[in-house]
């Protein structure tokens, strides 16, 4: 017994060390972006020369960047709204009704996870081309909704499974119709999931490059703009500044989304699924 306990503790310490190494592997490479974004040199190389914020002011002054940022915000917001709305309806159907073939539907909506982005991009490009729909930010939204659906569904289904089905029945029983029951019971209870889904799908869309690259036409989203800048070495410090800001903003949004998602889910209470 003693031996086992000691053994376990030793193993635990070893794994903890590994976990720290692993987190370093995840985070340190990315940290070079903010570090060099404040370096007072056009070359991204050690040693660091001095502190400056000029890359940030230069980058903010770029009208191309401003347009691309605004485009990305628009695309992200529409994508988040559409995929979360569709995901909420689908999650309601899959968790509340006995739908034949629900596993197939779930598999179908998760398919974009398993198809390379380049294939999603070019096949949509072909379709839009053959039905003569001009490329625009709207076609980017369509592509982004596609890749965001699996995430929206996953977040919302787990949220909807987390509360008692008879709450909605109680509302119907107390005289509200289906529509009002949705607004007075289902929606407030699903709200943490809805907010998390909105934020996460927004981030996925905001950061997505390849599908937008094929479907955006002449409008550039922020990742497309960044991609274009990478060709010019003298633009790199500005890209670093922009990238650092995007990373920080994404981190803040993700942490907020996950925090909201954890709200109201009591870890001590087993989710009541089914009867």
């Amino acid at each position: 017994m003693m031996a086992k306990v000691r053994n376990k503790a030793g193993q635990g310490r070893g794994l903890f060390g590994y976990a720290i190494f692993y987190l370093a592997f995840l985070y340190v490479p990315v940290l070079f972006l903010p570090i060099f974004s404040f370096n007072d040199s056009a070359f991204i190389a050690f040693p660091l020369v001095g502190f400056t914020t000029k890359w940030y002011t230069e980058m903010f002054a770029d009208t191309g960047m401003q347009i691309a940022l605004w485009n990305s915000l628009k695309v992200g917001m529409f994508t988040a709204l559409i995929s979360t709305t569709l995901g909420l309806l689908a999650a309601k159907a899959l968790t509340r009704y006995q739908v034949p073939g629900s596993a197939a539907v779930l598999g179908f909506t998760s398919l974009p996870l398993f198809v390379p982005d380049i294939v999603l991009g070019i096949s949509l490009l072909i379709l839009l081309n053959s039905v003569h729909i001009p490329l625009s930010l709207w076609t980017v939204v369509v592509g982004h909704v596609l890749i965001c659906m699996p995430f929206a569904m996953a977040v919302l289904i787990s949220r909807m499974e987390g509360f008692d089905k008879s709450l909605e029945e109680a509302s119907l029983d107390l005289g509200e119709d289906g529509w009002m029951t949705f607004w007075r019971v289902t929606f407030p209870l699903a709200l943490p999931g809805v907010i998390a889904s909105l934020l996460l799908t927004f981030i996925v869309s905001f950061d997505e490059f390849l599908i937008a690259y094929f479907l955006a036409g002449t409008d550039a989203t922020l990742p497309i703009y960044i991609w274009g800048q990478l060709r010019f070495p003298y633009k790199l410090p500005g890209v670093l500044a922009l990238g650092a800001l995007i990373l920080v903003a994404s981190c803040v949004l993700v942490i907020f989304a996950e925090w909201v998602r954890s709200l109201g889910t009591d870890p001590n209470k087993a989710p009541t699924v089914g009867a």
């Binding site: 629900s102 539907v105 072909i126 596609l146 659906m149």
Partner: peptide
């Protein structure tokens, strides 16, 4: 009722995933 709620999601998946892949 279930398929009525699922239909928007299924329709967009058909239009933006299944149809493009078939065309590909």
């Amino acid at each position: 009722r279930g398929y009525l709620l699922l239909s928007p999601a299924i329709l967009i998946m058909l239009a933006a995933l299944a149809a493009p892949l078939l065309l590909l």
